[in-house]
Design a protein around this nucleic acid. Structure first.
Length: 426
RNA sequence: GUGCCUGUAGCUCAAUAGGUUAGAGCGCCACACUGUGGAUGUGGAUGUUGUGGGUUCAAGUCCCAUCAGGCACCCCA
């Protein structure tokens, strides 16, 4: 084999099998989004660095974005996330969009990270957001859509969960401990499950917290009933109940999320076994739209789900669909060089009747052609040899139940459709 | 960006303590069947052992570098 040029690190080839998985995710995302009335949109893949500068968090921009200079010397960024683009798009038309704005998207994002399981440098991400309303019903609707998606692809509450917290609640609680600056506290919270109790307390002290403050934080983070102190969360869980998805959710005080722009509700979905990293992450952002150029204050809430982790989780539980190799339902075989025209004509009439049809491109031995049909999962094979041609007939073989019969070429499309429409005896 | 682990045919893996032309299963192709698929049988192709150096009489096996993947950190979808 000749020397091969490898793919760019962290970029993936999508062979038909992977492509069908990606499309399956896309179709389910689309279906659930539309079920709730969300409109599809997309932003540019290329953005200015400026868009992300003060909004997404230092790390994401400085360390993890693909940034390069274009020929004019402008700093261009391959989008590492979609929310800032969304915020700009909404800000641009702030005056003319009817509210609430319900939008969703599925497209590629890039982050310059070390690839690991469930994490690559080029990945696809579902984003769904509702903007222009502060109501907690909007937060709950977004969360419910996440749960509905899991349900749609067959993931049960025993397999996945969506953890909820509220940054406003946490800020109040943290302030009550006498902590002035919230940001480092959120960072400390984010780390609690990764460090031992001692290491975590030590880390807290290093970050400038007193021993009693870290102890207070630990108590806070162990309090699964903390949500009862937040009117927003009480209502939030009530609404989920009415929406019929409550069993997917639980309150988790240690979930605070990394992005700087989240202000209140935050959410994060995980598999119950804790085997994979977060399936989705999101929350409410009250100030982002005005920060990217709107005079009006437009708040929003949404989440993002990457294609990799959900793919791994779905595969683990056997919920990914079986891969259909060929979209064709019919293969028209070619008996010999002289019968090519007959086969092409038959295929044409089948296609014109709406049946997805392949032809075999060479007049090779029949068994090879049937073997091909079988390997491709094509159910019906049409054979037009000299005998059939002379009588204006065609032989049809149903590879699924080995049945074979003959039919006039004129009736072929109707007959094949009839077979495909009738239920299979199992 | 840091540390650790791994890297052999398309896939999953073998190859005594470094020792003759690197093997198997699955898959692939051909034939058995000159008008008929999934099974079976027979035969066949495929690897510069990730890449580049080095040590050695001899390297898939040891050393170094590099690339890629995985794990932890970081961060996050």
């Amino acid at each position: 084999m000749k020397k091969q040029i490898p793919t760019v690190k962290g970029a993936r080839d999508f062979y038909p099998e992977q492509m069908s998985l990606r499309n399956w995710l896309y179709e389910n995302m689309k279906a659930v989004s539309q079920k709730y009335g969300y409109q599809e949109y997309d932003g540019p893949f290329l953005e200015t660095l400026e868009l992300y500068a003060a909004k997404s968090g230092e790390e994401l921009v400085k360390e993890q974005a693909f940034v390069f200079n274009d020929r004019g010397g402008e700093q261009i960024t391959l989008r590492p996330e979609l929310t800032p683009s969304l915020a700009r798009m909404v800000a641009t038309r702030a005056g003319q969009l009817p509210r609430p704005i319900r939008w969703w998207s599925f497209g590629p994002m890039w982050r310059y990270e070390r690839p690991q399981k469930g994490r690559s440098r080029e990945f696809f991400q579902w984003n769904i957001d509702i903007l222009g309303t502060d109501s907690i019903e909007a937060d709950a609707e977004i969360a419910a859509i996440g749960a509905e998606f899991f349900r749609a692809i067959g993931l049960t509450p025993a397999e996945v969960k969506i953890q909820i917290n509220n940054r406003k609640l946490m800020s109040e609680q943290i302030a009550a401990l006498g902590v002035a600056d919230i940001k480092p506290a959120l960072k400390l919270i984010d780390r609690i499950e990764k460090l031992s109790a001692e290491a975590w307390a030590q880390y807290g002290v290093e970050q400038g917290f007193t021993a009693s403050q870290t102890a207070g934080l630990r108590t806070l983070l162990g309090d699964k009933e903390l949500w009862r102190k937040s009117d927003e969360l009480i209502r939030f869980f009530d609404i989920l109940d009415s929406m019929g998805v409550r069993e997917y959710f639980e309150y988790e005080p240690s979930v605070v999320r990394g992005l700087d722009y989240y202000t209140r509700t935050v959410m994060e979905a995980r598999d119950r076994d804790g085997e994979f990293r977060a399936i989705l992450g999101g929350g409410r952002y009250d100030n982002l739209v005005s920060e990217v150029g709107s005079d009006q204050r437009i708040s929003g809430v949404g989440f993002a789900m990457g294609d990799m982790v959900i793919g791994l989780v779905a595969a683990k539980y056997g919920r990914t669909p079986t891969f259909a190799k060929s979209p064709a339902l019919v293969l028209v075989t070619v008996f010999g060089p002289g019968s090519m025209a007959d086969s092409l004509r038959a295929a044409r009439s089948l296609r014109e009747s709406g049946l997805r049809t392949e032809t075999y491109p060479e007049a090779v031995k029949l068994d090879r052609q049937l073997k091909y049909a079988d390997a491709q999962g094509i159910r019906l094979a049409v054979i037009i040899g000299p005998d059939e041609a002379a009588a204006g007939m065609a032989s049809v073989k149903d590879l699924k139940n080995r049945a074979q019969f003959s039919v006039s070429q004129a009736d072929l499309p109707a007959k094949l459709r009839e077979i495909l429409d009738s239920p299979l005896p199992s």
